[in-house]
Design a protein around this nucleic acid. Structure first.
Lengths: 224, 224
DNA sequence: AGCCTAATTCAACGTCCGTTGAAAGGCAAA
DNA sequence: TTTGCCTTTCAACGGACGTTGAATTAGGCT
């Protein structure tokens, strides 16, 4: 099948562009106010398009919400899988340290932020809200992130042999809470510290979060 | 001024009872669906009272939301202040360990859950959502919890002398994320672990969370 | 040119929203 | 019994909600 030469802009790409504009507007607004706090009309006003167009490109408000999540989930998972690949590549004979594994879980997020701050800031804020919501947390986090998370926990299990599953899962849960709050950039730490700390200071986070978490794992996950 | 003998139920106490019924319904619903995900009509249906009554007892939906938060915040802060008092009482001459301080921050929450599970479960879920929301996180957490949190950080500072403020605030931030997610009981860890772990298993949390966090503090907050 | 399909606009649907003013009920004081 | 205050009900307001069907536009194909 031949791909036709496109003069100017094809219909399909025009459609995809508006779809992305809608997703961008939705991502930003959902991140700030949550699913219920945003109306389809607001989103389409922000996207500069007619309300009905939302329902041409997506089945429903809920479907649009899922599409916002889905759009970046695969890429984010790929980046983190690649980081863990690199660690395992480096340690084909010996075992990596937990620090290296945790860093493979966290530093890709910092890289994404460095590449395209505005985009990923909103996405991470959205993930934080979902992770902490009884409504979405159980289902959506599981759906989008379980395979990656399981692989990381397996890697940590090998780095801390004979740890119990319960210890590993609980420690991952603590990691998950610390990580999502930190990347949500709610402004909380800025207020609490009277400006000593800056939510968006990624170097400060990179210097502390992986080491903090690794120390916690090390302390809890010991051979039975 | 004389307090009149009340035959049956006084007007004032009748009023306070419905007010509490409204707050209970609001707490439960806000915890599950967030501020915007709940309507005043839903709340009043759940509370078994007329819609307009919400606006007799509270100024607005937002005011009701604040009242839900405020109702338990003072008591919760008192319990945690008392726990830290006890630690400082025990260590008037020597310094307490970080473990003891962190436990004074976390175990009161477990006690509240043991006393009245249904009530506090919803409240903690609500706090978790607020803490992770860009909309509320900065302002509300600061308003309700800053004095207590500052006192705890001061105590940790004395237990880990010469730590930098930035280290202390960041480590507290990680604690905050881990703690609020853990007490939110979203069901996430149950799914992830295929039932190995149980969100509501407070013993499992008590055995791991304080030790995990203390190890993190110890590792990061070292003399300059 | 004319057709076909995909993309977009327009106008509207029924429903529910947060909120309010006025009326009704209940109970203590006089 | 009447008065007066506190609490609760009733009915409604204007507006915004999620969603839809039909009409319009735009662009590639023959």
């Amino acid at each position: 099948m031949l791909v036709p030469q496109l003069r100017g802009q094809s219909v399909a790409s025009r459609s995809n562009e508006t779809k992305q504009r809608i997703l961008n507007a939705a991502e930003q607004l959902f991140a700030r106010e949550g699913f219920a706090g945003v109306t389809v009309r607001q989103i389409m006003r922000e996207a500069g398009a007619d309300v009905a167009l939302a329902y041409y490109h997506f089945d429903s408000k809920r479907d649009l919400f899922d599409a916002v999540l889905m759009r970046r989930a695969d890429y984010m998972n790929d980046v983190r899988h690649a980081a863990l690949d690199a660690v395992e590549q480096r340690h084909q004979d010996d075992a990596p340290t937990i620090e290296e594994i945790i860093e493979a879980f966290t530093t890709p997020l910092l890289q994404l932020l460095a590449e395209d701050p505005d985009t990923w800031r909103d996405y991470f804020a959205l993930i934080a809200q979902i992770n902490n919501s009884p409504q979405w947390g159980g289902e959506l986090m599981t759906r989008f992130f379980d395979p990656l998370v399981r692989r990381f926990i397996d890697a940590i299990r090998r780095a801390l042999p004979n740890s119990s599953d319960a210890d590993l899962f609980w420690c991952y849960h603590f990691l998950s809470g610390a990580l999502t709050l930190t990347f949500a950039e709610t402004g909380r730490i800025d207020n609490l510290s009277n400006g000593v700390c800056d939510s968006s200071d990624m170097d400060a986070i990179n210097e502390r979060l992986p080491a903090f978490i690794a120390a916690g794992f090390r302390h809890i996950c010991k051979p039975d």
